[in-house]
């Protein structure tokens, strides 16, 4: 009761209202979706990029929206048929080009590192496409898409690189 009087007198927002407003905001995010047409276009473009480095089972590519903890994530499952033999060279070229263009790459995923390390044993290709779905739904071009790719093993021309379809995640 005193809490009530206190609140009533001080006119600070009741925690009930705070709860409601916070919920509304977070649910707005939770509920937002990328229009299917945009999603499809993302899919095609991502595929085109990935295709330069690896052979992909195009039919099996899955692209989904995952909504969790305050952000919306685009999840892609890309079954890799095999890594192209010239992947390392291509990667180095692309990285150089990217560095020049200075695209918005998250600091922790410096592309040069990715290329030189380049030895993710599981041959996983990762790309990050996070952001508020609101932004995404405006236009696909607005979405901040940074790419961090680690493809294959260091010895790209090693024949053993041809591996069965693995899972690649596009988070």
């Amino acid at each position: 009761m005193f809490a009530f009087l206190d609140r009533f007198l001080s006119r600070s927002e009741a925690s009930r209202d705070t709860a409601k407003n916070r919920l509304k905001l977070v649910l707005m995010q939770d509920r937002s979706v990328i229009p299917p047409a945009v999603l499809e276009r993302i899919r095609t473009e991502v595929l085109a990029v990935l295709h330069r480095y690896v052979e992909i089972d195009q039919g099996a590519l899955e692209l989904n929206l995952d909504r969790s903890e305050g952000s919306v994530a685009l999840l892609a499952s890309v079954p890799i048929v095999r890594v192209r033999e010239d992947a390392t060279q291509l990667l180095a070229d692309a990285v150089a080009a990217d560095a020049a263009a200075a695209t918005a790459v998250p600091s922790e995923g410096a592309p040069a590192e990715a290329a030189s390390a380049g030895a993710d044993a599981d041959s996983v290709i990762e790309a990050v496409a996070t952001g508020l779905a609101g932004a995404l739904s405006e236009t696909a071009a607005d979405a901040q898409v940074g790419t961090e790719a680690t493809a294959g093993e260091a010895e790209a021309d090693d024949a053993s690189l041809a591996r069965p379809a693995g899972e690649a995640a596009l988070t």
């Binding site: 609140r7 009741a14 009930r16 209202d17 709860a19 649910l27």
Partner: peptide, 16 residues
Amino acid sequence: LVKNETMMSVEDVQEI
């Protein structure tokens, strides 16, 4: 708690 506005009411929940 709803009365003293520290808990969301049924109406609040339903509205959401």
